[in-house]
């Protein structure tokens, strides 16, 4: 790997008794899109906050753009762009005015200010709405403006904390197109967190985090290869009997997930006909697919990440932070 632009060693964050992050090690190469994937409360936001110098680690070290986050947070901040989980735009100002404000507080030289604002507006396709007040923007446009803002001072790394949270699937895809575009044009490194499994597929590499620790790290394909081959899911009126029989005669251990039997087999195309032919218990439905990151997470943690559930918890968390978070 080329010299890492993000390097964390043994990062720990404790809140009293609670250990939110329990020893994170990772390296991100220049130009990479690196995804931090995990359910809510896994420690994603805490980790990203430490890397962005918004929180100081209880233990461990991290260097971002070659600068120690504890010793020189101000210089780290000059080198990184941030897109927060919660909105942070002034919606009474226009898009352009929000960018101008940012250019000033990040000391973007006056000679290039205007050109760079135009360039970023162009890149995120906001040029025609640049003079409208942000309160008239859609959710996706606001996010794009925040991304444009985060890029304005030419950071080496763009950090995004759940950038697509609360956006509809089409808008989410659109944001991703823009992020990819941004990376290929500027070569910027992107570090982002998400709990949407499908999004993680867009990343070059993913770290799966659970309960404050990285449980797996690799490219999406490498991670999926951790699941042995294909995933077969079947339903039956006699699930228990089916499970028992499969274990005995096929030497595969099925797991029960939401009233289905799920098993990982090396070669699904051959396994399914054999299963249907030889199983004495009646099969209702059967399906075969390539493993997804959901399957990886399930295999590693024994639990599924579910977006709906996460959505609820998110809302609760946001409510809680509104009333309590500021007290910290």
């Amino acid at each position: 790997m080329a010299e890492a632009v993000i390097e964390a060693k043994g990062l720990v964050k404790k809140y009293g008794e609670l250990e939110a992050v329990r020893g994170i090690d990772l390296q991100v190469a220049p130009g990479e899109i690196f995804g931090f994937l995990g359910p809510n409360g896994a420690g994603k936001s805490t980790t990203i906050s430490m890397l962005c110098t918004l929180l100081s680690p209880t233990a461990g070290t991290a260097r971002v753009a070659g600068i120690d986050v504890v010793h020189d947070p101000a210089r780290v901040r000059q080198k990184i762009g941030l897109v927060f989980q919660d909105p942070s735009l002034d919606d009474q100002l226009t898009g352009r005015e929000n960018l101008e404000f940012h250019a000033f507080i990040y000391s973007v030289p006056a000679e290039v200010r205007r050109a760079r604002i135009d360039q970023m507006l162009e890149l995120l396709q906001l040029t025609d709405r640049a003079s409208s007040q942000v309160r008239t923007y859609s959710g996706g446009m606001k996010r794009r403006l925040e991304i444009a803002r985060g890029m304005l001072h030419e950071p080496q790394i763009l950090f995004l904390d759940e950038p697509t949270l609360g956006l509809d699937p089409q808008t989410r895809r659109n944001i991703w197109t823009h992020l990819n575009d941004l990376r290929s044009r500027t070569g910027i490194t992107i570090f982002m967190t998400t709990h949407y499994m499908d999004e993680a597929e867009y990343c070059d590499r993913i770290a799966i985090i659970d309960r404050g620790q990285i449980v797996a790290l690799g490219t999406p394909d490498q991670l999926k290869a951790m699941v042995g081959g294909d995933v077969v899911t079947m339903t039956s009126t006699q699930l228990d009997a089916a499970a028992e029989e499969i274990e005995k005669s096929f030497r595969v251990t099925p797991t029960r997930v939401d009233g289905t039997l799920r098993m990982e087999v090396p070669d699904g195309k051959k396994f399914v006909p054999r299963l249907v032919r030889e199983l004495t218990v009646p099969v209702d439905t059967i399906s075969l697919r390539r493993p997804s990151l959901d399957d990886v997470f399930l295999k590693l943690t024994g639990r599924a990440i579910r977006d709906e559930e996460a959505g609820d918890r998110d809302r609760m968390r946001q409510m809680a932070s509104r009333w309590m978070g500021r007290r910290r």
Partner: peptide, 8 residues
């Protein structure tokens, strides 16, 4: 937040 995290 945008203001407070800026390098100023």
């Amino acid at each position: 937040k945008e203001v407070l995290v800026a390098p100023i």
